[in-house]
Each structure stands twice: as C-alpha cells, then as structure tokens.
C-alpha cells in the first residue's frame, strides 16, 4: 500500500529546498542515463507509438521530488522536478521508488503492484500501458545499466537501495 495519501503537488515541511537541491544534483545523471537508454534500446520508442509526445510524471512517494519523462526520441526529456513545479502530466505513475525501479526492470509485475495498491496510475491509461509494455520488452536491467555507468559507487548505491526495501509483492518460490 502506498504510505501516504497526500496529493502529488502538496509539499511536505522543508521539502521545497531539499527538492530543488536534489534536482540540481541529479539532473546531469538523469540526462546521461536517459540518453544511454535511448541509444541502446531504440525499439522501445516504436511501442510507445503516439505517446512519445506524452508527458509522464513518475512520482516516487518517499522522495522529495518527482521525475518528468517525455520519451520523444527527437527531444528526450527526463528530469527531476520539485512537486510544486511539476508540469501538467498526461499520465502519472506513483509508488515507492524501488518498486518503480523494479517495474522498469521487470523484477516486479505491474498488474500485481496495481492490484495490491502499491502502484497508482492516473491520467491517460493508454499512455501508461504503452510505456509499461515498451519497458517490459527491454532485455537486461536498466537499473544495473544505469548504476554501472557510474562504476563501483553506482553499483554500491543500487545494492544499498535494494537491501533497504522489503520485497512484498514477488511470488514466494516454493513456500
């Protein structure tokens, strides 16, 4: 279950300054990551169809900022934005950060996360479905690809993130 019922645009105490600083620090990383993904996985754009031009807001609920994605191969946008200045999104995807990361990497099932209410979507549902299917058709792990771009420190951050989160929605093998 998503731990807060706060609407996306509402700021938590002290979030504004932290969010702006985090966005500034993160932006070069996000730009590098999205360009690499676009170069290595060009086929994902075909599955997006008309929603290459859609503005997606990806909202990791426990982080002080959201992520704005416009997957237009001619003008890619992937940036961290403070919630109070987030653009009007065509579709919003909301959940815990690591869940969102694992959905991208097909470590978790999106429908299952939706059924359990750990994942929320709003806005243009077709855009969300296309994005999900496009990402799901990619081989390998985006998270590992991205973390590997930053060498050992990047991989260490990813490993720490994975350890920090419980894994509630995966099937329990042979329980």
């Amino acid at each position: 279950m998503i731990p807060t019922s706060e609407p996306t645009a509402r700021l938590r105490p002290g979030e504004g300054a932290i969010a702006r600083l985090a966005c500034l620090v993160l932006q070069p990383v996000l730009t590098r990551v999205v360009r690499r993904v676009a170069t290595r996985h060009p086929s994902l754009f075909a599955r997006l169809g008309p929603h290459q031009a859609t503005d997606f807001l990806i909202d990791p609920v426990e982080l002080p900022f959201a992520l704005h994605l416009r997957p237009d191969p001619q003008a890619l946008v992937f940036r961290a934005v403070p919630r109070d200045t987030a653009p009007q999104a065509g579709a919003t995807i909301r959940g815990r950060f690591l869940l969102l990361l694992e959905l991208i990497d097909a470590e978790q099932d999106g429908d299952a996360a939706f059924f359990s209410r750990d994942l929320e979507v709003s806005g243009d549902t077709e855009a969300v479905v296309r994005l999900r299917n496009a990402l799901d058709d990619m081989d390998g792990s985006l998270a590992e690809e991205a973390s590997a771009m930053f060498g050992a420190p990047g991989r260490a951050v990813l490993a720490r993130l994975r350890r920090a989160y419980p894994d509630a929605t995966k099937p329990q093998e042979y329980a």
């Binding site: 097909a106 099932d109 429908d111 299952a112 995966k170 099937p171 093998e173 042979y174 329980a175």
Partner: peptide
C-alpha cells in the same frame, strides 16, 4: 502481463508438472 509474471508463473508450473510426471508430490510456489 509482465516478464516478471511470466517468469514466476511458468517456473512454478514447470516445476509442478515435472514433479507430478516424476511421481513426486508437486510443491507449487505461492
């Protein structure tokens, strides 16, 4: 559904069917 679903469900039923064919009790994943 996603690759995650496909991987989890197919693995679980593969193991169960193989167990049954081999005369063992199937211990299906949750």
């Amino acid at each position: 559904r996603s690759k995650s679903y496909v991987r989890g469900v197919v693995r679980a039923f593969r193991a169960a069917v193989d167990d049954i064919k081999a005369g063992r009790e199937a211990n299906i994943a949750d």
